[in-house]
Computed example of a mutant assay.
Amino acid sequence: MENPIGEKVLELLDGTTFKGSIRENFALMNHYVVFDTQRAIYDLVDLGHVGSAKALLRVIFEANVKATWIYQCASEKQLEQLQKDAVKSTVNKKLFNLVRWLMMSRK
Rank of each mutant, 00 (worst) to 15 (best):
L56M: 13
Q38M: 15
I60K: 03
N64D: 10
V45S: 04
K66Q: 06
F18W: 06
F26G: 00
T37G: 03
P4N: 03
L95C: 06
A67H: 01
F26S: 01
G6S: 03
L12W: 02
R39H: 03
R23K: 10
T16W: 05
N97L: 15
E2T: 11
F96T: 09
W69T: 02
E76A: 09
V65D: 06
F35G: 00
V65G: 02
V45G: 03
E76H: 07
K19D: 11
S75E: 07
D43T: 12
R39T: 13
R23C: 04
F35V: 09
E76S: 07
L47G: 01
N30W: 02
K66Y: 02
K19W: 05
S89P: 05
L13I: 11
N25T: 13
G48Y: 07
Q81P: 07
I70R: 01
Y71E: 08
K94C: 14
L102D: 05
S52W: 06
A86E: 11
R58S: 13
D85P: 00
S75R: 06
V34Q: 02
K84I: 05
W69H: 06
M103D: 12
L12G: 00
V99E: 05
L47S: 07
H31A: 11
N25R: 12
G15M: 06
N30I: 04
D43P: 00
L79S: 04
K54M: 14
L57Q: 04
M104R: 14
E24N: 03
D46Q: 12
Y71M: 11
L12N: 00
E24P: 01
D14G: 02
K107N: 11
L44K: 08
F35N: 00
V45L: 14
I5C: 02
F61N: 08
C73A: 13
V59H: 01
D14A: 12
V45P: 02
K107S: 10
V59C: 08
H31D: 04
Q72T: 08
T17Q: 06
S52N: 12
S105K: 15
G20V: 09
R39K: 14
K107M: 10
Y42G: 00
L95Q: 07
K66C: 01
N25V: 13
L13F: 05
R39D: 09
E24C: 04
M103A: 15
M29Q: 10
S89R: 07
V33A: 07
S89W: 10
K93L: 14
R23W: 02
V59E: 03
R106P: 01
E7L: 11
K88A: 12
E62Q: 13
Y71P: 00
N97R: 15
I60L: 10
L10K: 14
E62V: 10
L44Y: 08
N97A: 15
Q81F: 10
E24G: 04
V33P: 01
E2M: 08
T16K: 14
I70M: 09
Q72R: 12
A86C: 05
T68D: 08
G20I: 09
P4S: 05
N25F: 03
K19E: 13
L95I: 09
A53S: 09
A53C: 07
S21W: 04
V59F: 00
F18V: 12
R100V: 14
